[in-house]
């Protein structure tokens, strides 16, 4: 066996801050497996994250990484990929980071279709700040002192938003199914364009009831490139269907190119 592409080599020796039982452990394991399976060398990967429990993930990989600021993983990752198209770029974070403070970037990253993979670990709670309602929390979830009567506003529907914003790859996985999660991440990395992997990742500390996710998820979707069909699936979705929802082969973003010119030629435009 070729040990160079052993998943273990894709993990750093840093001990995660995550609680025992956190779904995010499966995500780092799946990313390591996916990169090993795809035979992508560590130094050719840039793994970008924002702020939150799950955003700590970048440092738990042995690739190049950037643990940036809250909500801005996607533009930072876009900057890496556009500047260095040769790199494999992953972005990751939580539901608050991606859909609340980073919501605008999420929309435009979907539209822009830069060739990178965005893995959102959704646990419907802000864990790092000790359990406040997130943009995917239920309107009547009363577990936070900040909103003791519940956030009272309906949760955002990330996959509907992604489709509406023209994402070219959309899937959903559950951390309890490592094989399917790994499969989706591999598929997303291989997809040429912006890929969203929405991961149901239970928070056992602030949302202990999410331990029950394992009984609710159902592998449902096979890829379609028909937007109407994808939307229809989401309208019928109970929030626990998993699989690859939508794949659009539209070409990824590339910046404008021009015929090469020397600095002297560029400067000549100013001469009178």
């Amino acid at each position: 066996m070729n040990t160079e592409f052993d998943p273990k080599n894709y993990r750093s020796d840093l001990k995660p801050v995550w609680c025992p039982g956190c779904g995010d452990y499966s995500v780092i394991a799946a990313i390591a497996r996916a990169l090993a399976n795809l035979k992508i060398r560590q130094e050719n990967v840039a793994f970008i994250s924002g702020i939150g429990c799950s955003s700590r993930i970048a440092a738990y990989a042995s690739t190049y990484g950037f643990h940036g600021i809250h909500g801005r993983a996607l533009p930072l990752a876009s900057g890496v990929k556009v500047a260095r198209p040769d790199l494999t770029v992953l972005a990751a974070g939580g539901d608050g980071d991606g859909f609340s403070i980073g919501g605008n970037h999420f929309l435009h990253a979907c539209r822009r279709n830069v060739d990178m993979t965005y893995i959102v670990m959704d646990n419907s709670v802000y864990g790092m700040t000790k359990g406040q309602a997130s943009p995917t929390s239920e309107a009547d979830w009363c577990g936070s002192k900040l909103t003791p009567e519940g956030p009272s506003i309906p949760p955002i529907q990330p996959l509907e938003v992604a489709l509406a914003a023209q994402a070219s790859y959309v899937s959903r996985a559950f951390t309890g199914d490592l094989a399917e999660l790994t499969r989706q991440i591999e598929e997303a990395i291989s997809h040429k364009g912006f890929s969203l992997v929405h991961v149901l990742s239970p928070c056992v500390t602030y949302r202990p009831e999410q331990r029950g996710y394992k009984d609710r998820v159902h592998q449902e979707w096979t890829p379609t490139s028909n937007r109407a069909e994808a939307f229809q699936r989401l309208l019928e979705d109970d929030g626990f269907a998993t699989g690859t929802l939508f794949v659009d082969p539209r070409p990824p973003y590339t910046p404008m190119t021009a015929a090469p010119a020397s600095m002297a030629e560029i400067e000549a435009d100013f001469a009178i």
Partner: peptide, 30 residues
């Protein structure tokens, strides 16, 4: 583009400055 570089229009200044951080982290003066 004439010197092999790239310019991207961002969605806001929060994005533009973070893209610049990303480009520079990746080794390209930004």
């Amino acid at each position: 583009p004439k010197v092999g570089g790239a310019l991207v229009q961002a969605e806001d200044e929060l994005a533009s400055i973070n893209m610049v951080v990303g480009g520079s982290f990746a080794g390209i003066p930004s």
